[in-house]
């Protein structure tokens, strides 16, 4: 039951993108298409699960004063593995996301969960928390990427939805489109949550 709560917390109540508003740089930068969003989310999830589990395992060994550098080394190692493996086996995807993969190291979700959760909880709970946060991040990125791809490029996961030559909302593919979409989605999330709260009370 505890594990279930750990998992779903990241999906809605403490969704890193819409609720905690952390790690927004990759959210805004890579979500020009749905597949980019999914891929970035999966890569971040992998790093989150692995680093949370390992940091939780090492929490008694790592002295408190050097915990941040130790966490960063662990996180950077997993990020580099993702970067190299993706470059070798998914070169097309890597050419799109390549610039942002190394930036997972400084994504505050990863270090944030290490500090706030993994350093205090068991290995299994930390891994599940990482998975939940990662999946929350992934669905947020996928939703954002889908909306921007449909409106900006007229396609969904690379499949064209409109006839070639149709004018699309080009701004949605550019950075302002990311801010506009994220703002509207956050407003919708807040509205839904406010309704739920009112129902309860």
């Amino acid at each position: 039951m505890v594990l279930w709560k750990d998992l779903i917390r990241g999906l809605w109540a403490e969704n890193p993108t819409f609720r905690l508003n952390i790690g927004l740089c990759p959210v805004l930068a890579v979500t020009t298409s749905a597949i980019n969003g999914v891929s970035m989310g999966v890569a971040t999830t992998f790093v989150l699960v692995c680093s949370s589990a390992l940091i939780s395992l090492l929490k008694r060994i790592i002295p408190d004063k050097v915990r941040i550098p130790a966490y960063i080394i662990v996180i950077a190692t997993f990020v580099t593995i993702v970067d190299l493996v993706m470059h070798a086996y998914l070169p097309d995807l890597h050419s799109v996301l390549g610039l942002f993969i190394p930036l997972i190291v400084v994504n505050c979700i990863v270090l944030g969960r290490a500090e706030a959760f993994a350093a205090k909880n068991s290995v299994v709970r930390s891994a599940v928390d990482g998975l939940g946060m990662g999946l929350g991040f992934t669905w947020a990125l996928t939703l954002l990427g889908s909306i921007r791809e449909i409106l900006g490029a007229g396609s969904f996961f690379g499949h064209a939805l409109v006839a070639e030559g149709t004018t699309t909302l080009g701004i949605m593919s550019l950075p302002p489109g990311a801010f506009i979409t994220l703002g509207i989605l956050m407003a919708v999330m807040n509205m839904v949550s406010a309704r739920q709260k009112r129902k309860v009370s």
Binding site: P63, P69, A70, I73, T77, I81
Partner: peptide, 14 residues
């Protein structure tokens, strides 16, 4: 020692 060991293991894996 702890930091050095972590860094060395990481370098080895990478």
């Amino acid at each position: 020692v702890v930091l050095a060991v972590i860094a060395m293991v990481s370098a080895g894996i990478l």
